[in-house]
Computed example of a mutant assay.
Amino acid sequence: MRWLPYGTDAVLVECDSLGEMSAVRATVAAADVPGVVEVIPGARTVLVVARPDSKALPEVRSLVEAADLANPPSADPREIVLDVRYDGADLELVAETAGIGVDEVVSLHTGAEYTVAFTGFAPGFAYLTGLPEPLRQSRLDTPRTRVPVGSVGLAGEFTGVYPRSSPGGWRLLGHTDAVLFDPRADRPALLAPGDRVRFRSLR
Rank of each mutant, 00 (worst) to 15 (best):
R146T: 01
A43I: 12
V13Q: 04
E157F: 04
A29D: 14
M21H: 02
A70R: 14
T115L: 13
A29T: 15
Y6D: 11
D141I: 01
V13D: 08
V105S: 01
G35N: 02
E38N: 06
A95Y: 09
E104I: 03
D182G: 06
H175S: 13
L172Y: 10
G88T: 10
A31V: 04
T129Y: 00
G194L: 06
A10N: 06
V94Y: 02
E38S: 10
G88P: 06
S17T: 13
M21T: 15
L135A: 06
R184L: 06
L128P: 14
R136H: 05
V147Q: 04
A50V: 07
V94R: 10
Y162M: 12
L47R: 03
I100Y: 08
Y127L: 09
D53A: 09
E14H: 14
P193E: 01
G120N: 09
P41F: 04
A126S: 07
A112T: 08
P52S: 09
S17A: 10
A189P: 11
V49K: 05
Y6S: 11
P73Q: 02
R61D: 06
A10F: 13
G156Y: 00
A112E: 11
N71V: 05
I40H: 02
V64A: 05
P34M: 08
V152M: 08
T142R: 15
G153D: 09
R85A: 06
Y6N: 07
A26Y: 00
S62Y: 01
L69H: 08
E96I: 00
V24K: 10
S201F: 08
A112V: 13
E38P: 07
E14I: 13
L12N: 06
D83S: 11
S22W: 01
V46L: 12
P34G: 02
F199K: 02
L18C: 05
F199D: 04
V152F: 07
R171T: 09
F125N: 11
D32N: 12
T145Q: 07
G88E: 12
G153Q: 12
R44M: 11
G42Y: 03
S54M: 07
A155K: 02
G150P: 01
V149M: 12
A30I: 08
T8S: 14
V94A: 01
S17H: 10
Y114T: 11
H175N: 05
V161R: 04
V39H: 04
L4I: 14
T176Y: 03
W170P: 14
G101K: 10
D90R: 09
P52A: 07
V13I: 15
R171W: 04
D32I: 01
A10H: 08
A122F: 02
A192Y: 07
L180S: 08
A26K: 13
L154S: 03
D16R: 15
A70P: 01
S107L: 00
P163A: 09
P41M: 03
L4H: 11
R139N: 08
A192M: 11
L18Q: 14
L82C: 02
L47D: 12
P134V: 08
A189T: 13
E20V: 05
G160V: 13
R146S: 15
A155F: 04
R203G: 15
P148K: 10
R85M: 02
A178I: 03
V94S: 04
Y6R: 09
D9L: 00
G153T: 08
G35F: 12
